[in-house]
């Protein structure tokens, strides 16, 4: 409830030309971490996540006048961050034609000084990369952030039933990946 009140106040400030940039800075401060981690789990590398996060906030800033509050501000920002992540990955796929983008990403992650996962955590990232991009989003939101399906529905525009099925399938695929690795 406190969050809703704060969001209403922020929205009022964002509509005031004189207060707009200050209010947007508050938006950045409030949501940067949630959005960063969401993006980071998709692009894996810190430098790439930083670029995508900046892009997401700049898109939000440029479109803030058209935001009418039909959804929660956080949902709207998440949607922008998700779109920016998917756009980034699609550009990377075009840039690395002929290579397996997932292999490129894992290599980059292994070289990333801002990743200190153990062997199993690295293997989990490899397993997650075998999922289709939208299923990766669903898995990350549920498994790591324990996000409510209703919230995910608002961000991804997919029904709760489909999201539950997608998550269940993602878990099965990941467990199967680990089982297969055992036999190697």
């Amino acid at each position: 409830m406190a969050d809703d009140k704060q969001e209403i106040e922020l929205m009022a400030l964002l509509q005031d030309e004189k207060q707009k940039s200050k209010a947007f800075n508050q938006v950045v401060l409030k949501y940067q971490q949630q959005l960063y981690w969401q993006i980071r789990k998709m692009v894996l590398n810190h430098d790439d996540a930083n670029d995508v996060l900046q892009n997401a906030f700049i898109k939000a800033w440029n479109a803030i006048d058209s935001f009418r509050g039909e959804s929660k501000l956080s949902t709207w920002l998440y949607r922008i961050a998700v779109n920016e992540s998917l756009t980034f990955l699609s550009k990377q796929r075009t840039l690395h034609i002929g290579d397996d983008l997932e292999d490129v990403m894992i290599n980059k992650l292994e070289a990333d000084s801002y990743f200190d996962g153990d062997e199993l955590q690295l293997k989990l990232q490899k397993a997650i990369l075998t999922l289709p991009e939208k299923q990766r989003l669903v898995f990350n939101m549920k498994y790591f952030d324990d996000m409510k399906y209703e919230e995910m529905e608002a961000i991804l525009g997919t029904s709760v039933g489909a999201l539950k099925a997608s998550y269940h399938l993602a878990v099965k695929k990941i467990e199967a990946f680990f089982e297969e690795e055992k036999t190697l």
Binding site: V28, Q32, Y114, F115, G117, L120, Q121, E179
Partner: peptide, 23 residues
């Protein structure tokens, strides 16, 4: 294999003061 066997703690880090500087 069950997913619970994996440490759920985030393996990702950010540079010091990253979020302050970012804002």
């Amino acid at each position: 294999f069950k997913l619970d066997e994996i440490n759920k703690k985030s393996p990702f880090k950010v540079p010091d003061n990253y979020f302050d500087d970012f804002a």
